[in-house]
Design a protein around this nucleic acid. Structure first.
Length: 512
RNA sequence: CGCGGGGUAGAGCAGCCAGGCAGCUCGCCAGGCUCAUAACCUGGAGGUCGCGGGUUCAAAUCCCGCCCCCGCAACCA
């Protein structure tokens, strides 16, 4: 049986999850659900990046300077609550302050050290005493620390470097041989030019930091946060704690990342793995960013969207549907509540919801609420398109396949006009038509499982099926045409997506 | 010369990599239907494809130059 190991970035918890974090995680969740649906063994990892100076600063702001771990525990718990409420199906929520991660990092560091890729060097940086941190030229405002408004000192410190440049050719060769390693292609071009023209060795420890995982054998130094963070993907597989699990899950099949961190995931990380003698992840998907109503999303503009609020207003499925449909995976997009409301009204309520409702109503009217006699149908082409889209990470296109079925169903109703067939006593044609419609709805339910899991359940129930029982059978059977059993009782119930009273394009802002 | 994305109908977008009738959704106009959540279906109007040049039988698509918008570099996926 094939396996699928998918990860999200681990998140800084100096604030609560924004819709951007939810976006990354929804992509991973949808793909995890897709592969589970196919019957594969899936491991889905997400979590928090806790060894960062940013978290320390946030703890200080929260008045918990003396209890940083306490602050992190609190925040991590709130993130987990939010992720639970959003219905994510991760197998583990990893925190980089957990013991097995420290163990994995130590093992990894030693492996890289043994290869000879770690050397002691001199790091020259602009150091702000107030922040106890180094800044780059670009971080400064008028040459001063943005927080303390003081001119940082140029100081040197001895720390450890990773011989990243040693892997320049190997990285380029790998990307050349595996065009899917970085998707979309625009990001691949970007990363190739970075590796070829800009990549340098990087410092992977800090003598000045008090927070973070100590360097093995040199307790005075702390490991640079990125070096530690990337290793979480190995920890989550069992590296350093469970060799059998690690052998099973590693390498990861897919890392999902934002476009801002591809250098770390597509250059540093694979080089680290090569150095440690471990296989590389199969694919890295860099998704785009979105603006909010055309403006960049930022705390200072106060337009950060709270995903939990949207989910409460519209339901988890609607948020998932909107993000997966509106934005082509890999591209930038725009998040707007007007657009969300538009898609809810037009596509969910009017097209899909109303289709289900009218079909079920006619089944009640003309067949006493039971599935009529089976007839031929053909949806193999739709399934092929759907699977290809999902495999190629074009989730938006997979949804387009589903909506094509929705539209074709609505057209079929218009064409056949079951109400006329009923009057004319065209029993055979009427039964055939209704069976095709009902069975197509069953297939639509299945296709929606990864993206709109609650909706898929509800639709199956309306068709008189028990979701748990449906999902326990082999998909080769479930996805066959004609599996909807004649004579079964349907359960019309309330519309899937009720019309919203007025256009309450209410504000769901705030909660930074 | 920092890196990257973009400019296509009133709005939002696809098409560009592999050149071949300019397409989708919303909105607008007209018609149809009455099973349905005032939903659904059909048709129509609406576009110098940012600008200028080049290659070609043929350019939204390839090449050169220019203009404009946006993101990253500061919280932020």
């Amino acid at each position: 049986m094939s396996k699928f190991y998918v990860t999200t970035p681990i998140y800084y918890i100096n604030g609560l999850p924004s819709v951007g974090h939810a976006y990354s995680t929804i992509i991973a969740d949808a793909l995890a659900r897709y592969h589970r649906m196919k019957g594969e063994e899936v491991r889905f990892l997400t979590g928090t990046d806790e060894n960062s100076q940013k978290n320390v600063e946030a703890a200080e702001r929260a008045g918990m300077k003396d209890d940083i771990q306490g602050y992190l525990d609190q925040m991590a718990a709130r993130w987990q609550e939010a992720f639970d409420e959003l219905g994510f199906t991760h197998d583990r929520f990893i925190r980089t302050t957990e013991a097995d991660h420290a163990q994995a990092v130590e093992k990894f560091w030693k492996a890289v050290e043994k290869t000879g890729d770690i050397y002691l060097g001199e790091y020259v940086g602009l150091y702000c005493k107030g922040c106890e941190a180094f800044y780059g030229e670009a971080d400064l405002v008028d040459g001063k620390c943005p927080l303390h408004k003081t001119v940082p000192e140029a100081i040197k410190e001895k720390n450890y470097f990773f011989r990243l440049t040693k892997y320049r050719d190997a990285l380029l060769e790998h990307i050349g041989k595996h065009p899917d390693f970085v998707v979309p292609a625009s990001r691949r071009n970007e990363i190739v030019s970075y590796i070829r023209d800009f990549m340098t060795d990087i410092s992977i420890s800090r003598a000045s930091m008090k927070w973070g995982i100590p360097v093995p054998g040199d307790e005075k130094q702390r490991i640079y946060v990125w070096f530690d963070a990337l290793i979480n993907y190995l920890t989550g597989a069992g590296y350093g704690s469970d060799d059998a699990a690690c052998a099973k899950w590693w390498p990861a099949d897919l890392h999902i990342v934002g476009k801002d961190i591809i250098k770390f995931h597509c250059a540093l990380w694979p080089a680290m793995l090569m150095s440690a003698g471990l296989p590389l992840p199969t694919r890295v998907l860099a998704h785009g960013f979105f603006t909010v109503n055309g403006e960049k999303m930022s705390k200072s503009l106060g337009n950060v969207i709270d995903p939990v609020q949207i989910a409460r207003d519209y339901g988890n499925d609607v948020l998932r549907y909107f993000l997966m449909r509106e934005i082509r995976l890999g591209e930038d997009g725009d998040f707007s509540l007007d657009r969300l409301a538009q898609r809810y009204d037009g596509e969910l309520a009017n097209e899909l919801g109303n289709l289900a409702h009218r079909v079920l109503t006619m089944t009640e009217k003309y067949f006493d609420g039971t599935v009529p006699k089976r007839t031929d149908g053909f949806l193999a082409g739709a399934w092929d398109g759907y699977h290809l889209a999902m495999e190629e990470l074009r989730v938006h296109d997979a949804l387009e396949v589903v909506w094509k079925l929705v539209r074709e169903s609505n057209q079929l109703i218009e064409e056949r006009a079951p109400w006329k067939l009923a009057k004319l006593k065209e029993e055979k044609m009427l039964a055939d038509t209704m069976y095709v419609l009902l069975e197509t709805l069953r297939h639509i339910s299945w296709m929606l499982v990864p993206i709109m899991p609650d909706t898929a359940d509800r639709l199956l129930e309306k068709l008189g099926l028990a979701p748990a029982k449906e999902f326990s059978q082999a998909v080769e059977v479930a996805w066959r045409w004609g599996e909807l059993a004649p004579g079964a009782k349907i359960e019309k119930g309330e519309p899937l997506f009720p019309r919203r009273e007025g256009s309450q394009a209410a504000e769901a802002r705030g909660n930074s």
